[in-house]
Write a protein that binds this DNA or RNA. Structure first.
Length: 274
DNA sequence: AAAAGGCCCTGGTCGC
DNA sequence: TGCGACCAGGGCCTTT
């Protein structure tokens, strides 16, 4: 489950190999991802020069705009996706569904569970239906306690579920939602709209610090997360609560509890989180 | 509008 | 050792 830090690490890893390069073709081995890879993708992208690689939420955006028309390749890693740079002609392994050919190199998508996506968009990328409704970028200054407080107002759902709603803030998946709530000392079951401004400030700070720490560690929420160059830079992070049901809280030694919220596992310390 | 549940998919783990 | 059941999860979509 690549979360935002992993996606950003991936973006940084591939960008130097993509920016300025000409796309020489694509290779599709399995079209059935979250949505089918567009059948006409090759004709759309071949010959275009890549201007840069950006990110919005967990979507990786490859800018293929030409002077006369904007064009973007949209990639999403889903839960099990990873991208790697390889030499042209490298034999494909199972689950390696898509290649973006770049002359003597290629960008290869591996995604065993096929929850990822490869899409093409012409025109203003911000208007794309998948991106237009996205909420704040958690690491940007615009994501503040005040903004979160306003967004949570009138929400009766548990704060953890609302936190994972991408129309409010992007990139906070299950692991970092759990960890951030622990760091902020907030009970994941608390009704979102009841959080005080002070607690929202604390929660925003916790989200930012949790994500930044993961980013600094090289991005690492998944066992099989692979860096874009293939090195296994995976560095298992020390989680406070995620996956630690029954184990003693690292702060107060109270056993960590687990429950289900919206079909997802929640972990929290009943003593530290109120 | 918000909330709740379904669905897509495969690999890993567990009990028998 | 083999096999089925179950879980993990991002996020869009449909239903309430």
């Amino acid at each position: 489950m690549p979360e935002l830090p992993e996606v950003e690490i991936t973006r940084r890893g591939i960008e130097p190999y993509l920016a300025g390069k000409i796309i020489t073709g694509v290779r599709v081995r399995e079209r059935r991802l979250r949505w089918p890879i567009p059948p006409n993708l090759s004709a759309r992208v071949t010959g275009r020069r890549i201007l840069g690689v950006t990110r919005r939420g967990k979507y990786i955006l490859i800018d293929c705009s030409s002077s006369d028309r904007a064009g973007w390749l949209i990639l999403h890693l889903g839960m099990s996706g990873s991208l790697r740079i390889m030499a042209a002609g490298t034999a494909a392994q199972p689950h390696e569904h898509f290649d973006l050919l770049l002359g003597n190199r290629l960008l290869r998508l591996r995604d065993p569970r096929r929850f990822g996506a490869v899409l093409w968009h012409t025109g203003d990328i911000a208007r794309h239906p998948l991106l237009a409704g996205l909420g704040a970028e958690p690491l940007e200054d615009g994501f503040s306690g005040g903004l979160l407080h306003r967004a949570l107002r009138a929400r009766t759902a548990p704060v953890k579920l609302v936190l994972m709603n991408a129309s409010i803030v992007v990139g906070v998946g299950n692991i970092y939602a759990n960890e951030s709530l622990f760091r902020a000392g907030i009970d994941p079951r608390a009704p979102a709209g009841r959080l005080s401004r002070t607690r929202c400030n604390r929660l925003v700070a916790a989200i930012k610090s949790t994500l930044k720490q993961a980013l600094a560690a090289g991005g690492s929420s998944l066992r099989d997360f692979v860096h874009s160059d293939g090195s296994s830079g995976y560095f298992q992070q020390q989680y406070y609560v995620y996956g630690r049901a029954g184990l003693p809280c690292r702060v107060c030694a109270t056993p960590i509890r687990q429950l289900r919220q919206g079909q997802r596992s929640t972990f929290y310390c009943p003593s530290c989180q109120k």
